[in-house]
Write a protein that binds this DNA or RNA. Structure first.
Lengths: 136, 136
DNA sequence: TTAAATGCAACTATAAAAAATACATTTATT
DNA sequence: AATAAATGTATTTTTTATAGTTGCATTTAA
């Protein structure tokens, strides 16, 4: 299955911005996203860890943005979600020891992946949740 | 499962460059990559369509680069493999019609994905197979 | 005390990709 | 002409990452 966590996160963050300082609960978000509340909460928990949102437990609880929408970039959301992952996966089988190409490939591909990650992060750093809210 | 076709393609292309004008067969490549010849041939067939390699059938057949390694960029390889795919997937369920955020989200996320794709392609356009070969 | 929320762990289902299988076709060699 | 060695490609099976489900503990407002 494809990983939709970044796009779901962006959707959640824009929705929170749209609802300003109201607390929004995970059932509402799950219905909006046509998914389930557990999935929403898994994503939310990472966004909380990254201090991008605040979560309140108990009756009338819910979540809201942790700081102004204009101060939240997509790069921060991306980093919160993609913690130990990359956009582009590489084939990681042990290189054939006798093959010079294979032996260098892990490094070569690692550099390429790093380059993609940094150009992506550089691009995402320029976009804020406030920018997206203006398009609603 | 993760899609490793781009990284496998790069590995194949560098290996072809390394072997200069010799014809290399899919069994050799499959062993090098610790995968199977059918998978190699599926990838090869796209690279042939993109004119990045040439393939020769029959006994003593095999493949070789379709043009000088210095003229082959990673962007071309990326485009050949990612034809109808993007690095970043989005959640594509029908928006809740009554929700303004959901209704705009497809466009918003589409723009973001396009931005990532173009910054990635722009980065990959600067790297050639010859550049990688020098690192072997 | 209760209702309504989050938090989280464990399990199941789904779907995308890789691997396996089978066989047709092509071509060099003998 | 026959054979061996290669690609091409369609179909099926296996693997695995992600989403979805379930269940329950915990928290907090009313």
């Amino acid at each position: 299955m494809v990983d939709t966590r970044f796009s779901v996160s962006v959707h959640i963050m824009v929705s929170l911005a749209y609802h300003q300082d109201e607390l929004v609960n995970s059932d509402f978000l799950a219905k909006m996203l046509k998914t389930n509340a557990t999935f929403v909460r898994k994503i939310v928990s990472r966004l909380v860890d990254a201090k991008l949102i605040e979560s309140y437990r108990g009756k009338n609880g819910g979540i809201k943005l942790g700081k102004p929408a204009a101060d939240i970039t997509l790069k921060e959301i991306y980093c919160a979600m993609m913690d130990e992952k990359c956009l582009l996966a590489t084939h990681k089988k042990a290189p054939s020891k006798s093959c010079a190409v294979s032996c260098s490939m892990e490094d070569i591909l690692g550099n390429i992946v790093d380059g993609i990650e940094s150009s992506t992060k550089n691009y995402l750093a320029k976009i804020t949740i406030h920018d997206l809210l203006k398009k609603i």
